[in-house]
């Protein structure tokens, strides 16, 4: 069972709630995914066209809400958003995102580390979104991050786990759970991350923009479970040279001697 900051999760798939065509499709996809942790964002209320309240849509089931600080460009903005999120949700869970460049949406390592340190002291359960940098992962862990969330590839790109060799090192060193976040575009990407030993994956775009988001959510749930089972089962080593799967010794007749 996955445990983050003392809370247990039977599902190792976390879902983002952005970009769904309707709140009904979102709710059904989340249900189909069997996930227990969902991310949400904070935005100014559009006073000319107020949106439906996402929390009341999601309140029908018991999810752990993971508000994010998306939009924050530095530590100061992220900390401000974190406090608003806690006031609005009553939860201390936080996906810390600091992305100064809207073109790449890559996380700022220096500001992320600063904000993590401050927010942990303020009592937040901080899960920082980070580049797949093993040294940064250790530093975030040292200042009290409850988990680390290295990216597979840039947000929303569906490019998969391009950072796999670095994520392997992060997993190898981490004392806190490793959640591969961002860029996971297909169930096979999620399975791959789980086979490597990731503790969980966070998926949004790949599900919300799928032709059938509800079916895709189910596919991701199956992939995450398959990948985790494979990791626990222990994967065979990769070899450069072939090694026969069928027995090499046998007592076949002389005319099949080439089989010996």
């Amino acid at each position: 069972m996955l445990r983050i900051a003392g809370t247990e999760f039977s599902s190792r798939l976390f879902l983002g709630t952005g970009k769904f065509s309707s709140s009904d499709v979102m709710a059904k996809a989340i249900e189909a995914s069997d996930c227990q942790m969902v991310t949400v964002a904070l935005r100014r209320v559009d006073l000319t066209n107020p949106e439906d309240d996402i929390m009341s849509t999601l309140a029908k089931r018991e999810y752990t809400f993971l508000p994010n600080t998306s939009g924050a460009r530095d530590a100061k903005e992220a900390i401000r958003l974190a406090h608003l999120a806690r006031a609005a949700s009553g939860t201390s869970w936080l996906k810390l995102e600091v992305t100064p460049d809207p073109r790449t949406l890559l996380p700022d390592p220096v500001e992320t580390l600063k904000a993590t340190e401050t927010l942990v002291k303020d009592g937040f359960i901080v899960l920082p979104y980070m580049n797949a940098d093993p040294i940064l992962a250790l530093k975030l862990q040292d200042v009290g991050a409850a988990a680390v969330m290295p990216l597979g590839s840039p947000i929303g790109t569906n490019q998969g786990v391009l950072t796999d060799s670095m994520i392997e090192i992060i997993i190898d060193q981490a004392k806190v759970p490793v959640v591969v976040d961002a860029g996971i575009g297909a169930p096979s990407h999620a399975a791959y991350a789980m086979e490597m030993g990731a503790d969980a994956v966070l998926v949004n775009t790949a599900i919300s923009v799928a032709g059938d988001p509800v079916a895709m959510a189910r596919a991701f749930a199956q992939a995450v479970e398959a990948g985790r089972t494979a990791y626990v089962a222990g994967m065979g080593q990769r070899n450069k040279q072939a090694s026969a799967s069928s027995p090499e010794k046998g007592n076949l007749s002389a005319d099949l001697g080439f089989l010996e």
């Binding site: 709630t17 769904f20 904070l42 949106e51 309240d53 929390m55 609005a88």
Partner: peptide
């Protein structure tokens, strides 16, 4: 004054 709400997001 800022009036903020939760919306869908990753």
């Amino acid at each position: 004054l800022e009036i903020i709400q939760f919306v869908g997001g990753g």
